[in-house]
Structure formats: structure tokens, C-alpha cells
């Protein structure tokens, strides 16, 4: 394998190939220019060392043609490189619609992960190969960063908001999971592994883990226990928006704007009900601050998203 000669780490996701290709082309460009300048410098350095017999007649103090040449070529190359890199980047920010959704909560100094079927893991993430996985992540304390080198993906995990990361593993194996944003004393211990498995192994793994309830079931329980259903159910006497089919769709707000009902919108609506009030409703919902953990929020949101 030619690749094994290059200092390229293991490629285990669909994105890693695209990014490595980009990286190698950049490297070729860098090597080309480094060698070009170094060779010219070396030639000049040897040829024009003081005392050498070299033709020094008609020297040049400047040349507009040359200046334009070596401004325009780097400019064109830079724009070209930018365009290609951005094209690859588009892929990285748009998770496929059929992604499997996994939630991640970071805290000093561990990763808490929950699968849709309810399985929980700490510092480990099991995923099937050949299927896009979308992580929705948040932090309980400081900023962390979820980094899987073999997949070439990284995303900061910021308290108070959700961030997203997606990948599709291509090769079964166990890969490093690092926290890449400095987060305090044991930052370098906030590590773990991502285990990519064949789909059937993943299914087996899911079954082996005992779980009382899936995320949606847990969310349904919370919806009831925390009193959400008291207002947001169809037969409620309080006038509150019905949540059926709300997920993903546009929500008109009372200030005239329309926002997509993504995870963050749902989260904010639970914690900060006054932030974005649905059109036609009064801002009477109490906040659920302090009554739900980040994990419970994820479960509640998972449930709300299933309401048809």
C-alpha cells in the first residue's frame, strides 16, 4: 500500500478519504513551493557567494511582471484550494436524513452517551459500519471537543447549546476518542474509544445490553411525569400548542419570524419558553430549568420528535 508509506493515520470513515486526499494534494503543493524556493535559494546562494565568478551584470531591482506573476499564481491557487476544501466541508456539515441519532453529554472528564434504544455508555461509543451516525452533543460544564481522529471529525461540545457531528464508519475496529478542547485538570484522561461494528454485531451488542426503556419511552415517561402532557395533550383545557408533527417543521413565532423546530429549538422551548413563543399563544409556560438533566432533555426531545 502506497498510503501506508505516508504518515496518514487509519482511514475508517467515508469522510476520511476525502479529507486525506485534500490533505495530500495540499501537501504536494506545499512540498512543491518549499522545494521550488529552496532550490532557487540554494542555487543563488552558491552561485552568488561573495568572491564567486558569476555574471553580475545587468542586475534587476524589481519587475512588475514578476510581481504580478507571483501574486496572481498564489491567489488563483488559494481560491482553488479554498473552493475544493469548502466543497468537502459542505459534506461534513450536512448529516444525511436517515442518520442514526446518538446523544452525547460531555462533562469533566467523561463522555456520557445514549443510544436511541436506550443503551448508555461512558467513554465508549459503539456504532454500526455503513450507516451514518449523527451525534447531538452538549456539555454540562465547560467546553469540550469530540474528536475521532480515524474518522477525521471533530466538534466542540459547548454548554448551553447543541452541536452536531456526523460520520459513517467504513471499517470495523476500535478507534481513539479524544477530548480535543482543553477542559481542565484531567483533560488528557477524557478519552475513550469508538467501536465500529458490523451491523449484525451491533444489533447483537444492543441486545446484550439490558435496558429498561428506549430514549423515546423514557421521554414519554418524562412527558407525563413532568406534567408536559397536562397542557400539550389534545384534551387539555390549557391553550398550549400541540406538539404533534412539530419536529423539523417550520414554527411561526409571535414576532412574525419562522424558525425550524430543530433539537435546539425544542431544548430552548423547554428551558427558555419565553425565548421563542409560537404565534397565537401566550407565553405562559413555566420554565423547566433545574428540573431536567441534559440526558432527560435529550430523551424528552427524542419523544417529542416521534409525535405524529
Amino acid at each position: 500500500m502506497l498510503l501506508s508509506l505516508l504518515p496518514i493515520p487509519e482511514q475508517a470513515s467515508t469522510q476520511s478519504v476525502a479529507i486525506d486526499t485534500l490533505f495530500l494534494v495540499f501537501t504536494a503543493l506545499v512540498v512543491f513551493f518549499t522545494v521550488l524556493v529552496s532550490v532557487v535559494l540554494t542555487i543563488f546562494a552558491i552561485k552568488y557567494t561573495r568572491g564567486s565568478k558569476a555574471d553580475r551584470s545587468n542586475p534587476l531591482d524589481g519587475s512588475l511582471k514578476l510581481e504580478i506573476t507571483w501574486s496572481v499564481i498564489p491567489l488563483v491557487l488559494a481560491i482553488g484550494a479554498f473552493s475544493w476544501a469548502s466543497y468537502v466541508y459542505f459534506d461534513l456539515v450536512h448529516p444525511p436524513a436517515d442518520s442514526m441519532e446518538v446523544t452525547v453529554v460531555g462533562r469533566q472528564w467523561m463522555w456520557k452517551i445514549q443510544h436511541p434504544t436506550g443503551q448508555r455508555e461512558i467513554n465508549e461509543l459503539h456504532v454500526p459500519v455503513g450507516r451514518p451516525v449523527k451525534l447531538t452533543m452538549t456539555s454540562q460544564d465547560v467546553i469540550h471537543s469530540f474528536f475521532i481522529p480515524a474518522f477525521r471529525v471533530k466538534q466542540d461540545v459547548v454548554p448551553g447549546t447543541y452541536s452536531q457531528l456526523w460520520f459513517e464508519a467504513t471499517k470495523p475496529g476500535t478507534y481513539h476518542l479524544f477530548c480535543a478542547e482543553y477542559c481542565g485538570t484531567e483533560h488528557s484522561r477524557m478519552i475513550g474509544s469508538v467501536v465500529a461494528m458490523e451491523p449484525q454485531d451491533y444489533e447483537k451488542w444492543l441486545q446484550a445490553g439490558s435496558t429498561n426503556e428506549s430514549m423515546v419511552q423514557a421521554g414519554e415517561r418524562l412527558f407525563r411525569d413532568k406534567g408536559c402532557s397536562g397542557c400539550h395533550a389534545g384534551n387539555s383545557s390549557v391553550r398550549a400548542p400541540l406538539l404533534n408533527g412539530i419536529s423539523g417543521g417550520p414554527v411561526p413565532l409571535d414576532d412574525g419570524t419562522v424558525v425550524p423546530a430543530d433539537d435546539l429549538y425544542l431544548r430552548d422551548s423547554i428551558l427558555l419558553p419565553k425565548k421563542q413563543v409560537a404565534a397565537g399563544f401566550k407565553p405562559i409556560m413555566p420554565t423547566f430549568q433545574g428540573q431536567l438533566s441534559e440526558e432527560e432533555l435529550f430523551q424528552l426531545i427524542a419523544y417529542i420528535k416521534t409525535l405524529e
Binding site: W109, S139, D141, E294
Partner: peptide
């Protein structure tokens, strides 16, 4: 660990 348990 030093951290709140409630969401942020």
C-alpha cells in the same frame, strides 16, 4: 467532579 447536574 465539579459540575452542576442540572442542564445549562
Amino acid at each position: 467532579a465539579k459540575a452542576p447536574l442540572e442542564p445549562v
